[in-house]
């Protein structure tokens, strides 16, 4: 089985900080970071409480996966960025470090140009954090942080 993504407090705070900055600097309504398998990593802006971020994350991953499939069919590796324009709000998605998707939701108070510019910088910063995560995971040799869980703990979860 492929080893999953494990994020510690410091790394989580770092990527959340980048998303908060991006939300502010790009005048965006919502910014969220999703792993390519549809798990929400973090979010900022209006996302807190108001939006169904779990559904958003899953649909984002589905969309990116479908576009990736289309890309391969026409001989492209992937479509690293996507932009969807709505009547009031628009959506910008970009793949970061081949592993996560950075999503920005914005309206007329911002612009595609500004979002693109800020996303570029934020992507580099997130990429650096993910590099640290990957290095740490490689150096621990994929050892499970859950090795201490007992069979009993697992059984208890399912006993009613």
């Amino acid at each position: 089985m492929n080893s999953g993504l494990v994020m510690y407090d410091e790394e989580f705070r770092a990527v959340t900080g980048v998303c908060e900055h991006l939300c502010r600097d790009a005048n965006a309504n919502v910014v969220f970071l999703v792993d390519k398998n549809g798990q929400l990593i973090t979010s900022s802006g209006r996302a807190k409480g108001e939006l169904d971020t779990t559904s958003l994350a899953s649909l984002t991953a589905g969309n990116v996966a479908a576009m990736g499939g289309l890309a391969k069919l026409i001989g492209e590796k992937e479509f690293p960025t996507q932009f969807h324009e709505g009547e009031r709000e628009s959506l910008h998605m970009s793949i970061v470090a081949g592993r996560v998707v950075l999503v920005v939701v914005f309206d007329a108070r911002s612009s595609l140009g500004l979002v693109r510019l800020r996303v570029k910088k934020a992507s580099e910063e997130i990429g650096r954090v993910l590099e640290v995560v990957a290095k740490r995971q490689a150096s621990t040799g994929g050892q499970s942080p859950f090795a201490e869980i007992t069979d009993e703990d697992i059984d208890n979860l399912f006993s009613e």
């Binding site: 999953g4 994020m7 989580f12 705070r13 942080p145 859950f146």
Partner: peptide
């Protein structure tokens, strides 16, 4: 591929 978040303590 699981995602373990130590900050929000979620698997």
């Amino acid at each position: 591929m699981s995602f373990i978040n130590y900050s929000s303590r979620e698997i």
